[in-house]
Design a binder for these strands. Structure first.
Lengths: 176, 176
DNA sequence: CTTGAAATGGACAGCGT
DNA sequence: ACGCTGTCCATTTCAAG
């Protein structure tokens, strides 16, 4: 008998099938280019266009595909400066005032993390002066003890979540 | 007479107009949802559909819109663990072996940064074991002296480059 | 999941401002 | 130079097998 049922893993809409190879192939192409037609995808994966369409619809409504967006060039929209801000707080860092930073279009990510800091905030700004302004705003938040900022000098890779998974990472011998 | 000419700022294809308000509006909506029709965008910005289409085409070929992609859910594709790895190296950190990490679908970002570390690598993996495997691979790179890893406990915001810019950041008085 | 049909939206040309 | 109107065609989307 089966020890784990598919029923265990559900989502808001319908049940989640553990993403077969065709799903992953479709997700892979769409994560690289979402402008291509279902017809061209169907050729790649070896299915008919409506079949691909139905799978994509399912992947959308089940939340695997969160959204489809245009990726903009930071410098071209006037924000050439990228930085990561580590925020140290006294007490609980994830306050309402802190999360209100998301109203700023310069703030792209806010993560609560383990390690010797509380929060990591990814920001993209127009200038060093704007970065200072953002830091000033962070220091206005109650409980902020200090920050450390890492300014990006060069970005060699910046992409969103990939569908693929390396299969040799978990079996790797880490004993030298 | 004008002191700066538009000619100064060019790109691969055609010249860059400094992104008027309509461009920014269009970029704003597309960066949030690129599935909507040109007709609906035209209603929002107050232009005809072909006019919007032409602008989008221009924004694409000029590189302001780098690509249009599907945003996937990390957990749903089997990679629930997000982390930032700070890499310290002896000498120049940006070696060919280091940049080869981009072949791993788990590696999403690689930045050279200022501050008390050399590189920041954003990774999304299936498990702690896979994270260890990735770290092992990083330590295989010549010249790596050490790493510090910040594991994300909660992500409160994660989005791509926004078209909008706060106009009060650069004029903010930072003297208390 | 496939084949076939209907409807929607995208892409292009020409015109006018 | 830029945007609008009208047209054709590709693509999406639905229904039936």
């Amino acid at each position: 008998m089966a020890v784990a049922k598919t029923e265990d893993v559900r989502k808001s809409n319908g049940m989640i099938r553990p993403l077969d190879d065709l799903d992953r192939k479709i997700l892979g192409t769409l994560s690289r280019d979402a402008t291509q037609s279902y017809a061209s995808i169907s050729r790649e994966v070896g299915l008919s266009a409506p079949a691909v369409h139905e799978r994509v619809k399912r992947l959308r409504s089940s939340g695997v595909i969160k959204s489809t967006v245009a990726q903009l060039d930071g410098a071209a929209v006037g924000k050439p400066l990228l930085g990561f801000i580590h925020v140290d707080t006294t007490g609980w860092g994830k306050t309402r005032a802190m999360l209100a930073l998301e109203d700023r279009p310069e703030v792209e990510e806010i993560h609560g993390v383990t390690g010797d800091t509380c929060l990591i905030i990814k920001v993209r700004v127009a200038s060093p002066l704007a970065l200072e302004g953002l830091l000033a705003q962070i220091y206005d938040v109650e409980g902020v003890r200090g920050t450390r900022t890492f300014v990006s000098l060069s970005t060699h890779l910046e992409r969103s979540v990939q569908a693929e998974i390396s299969d040799d990472l978990e079996s790797r011998s880490v004993i030298k």
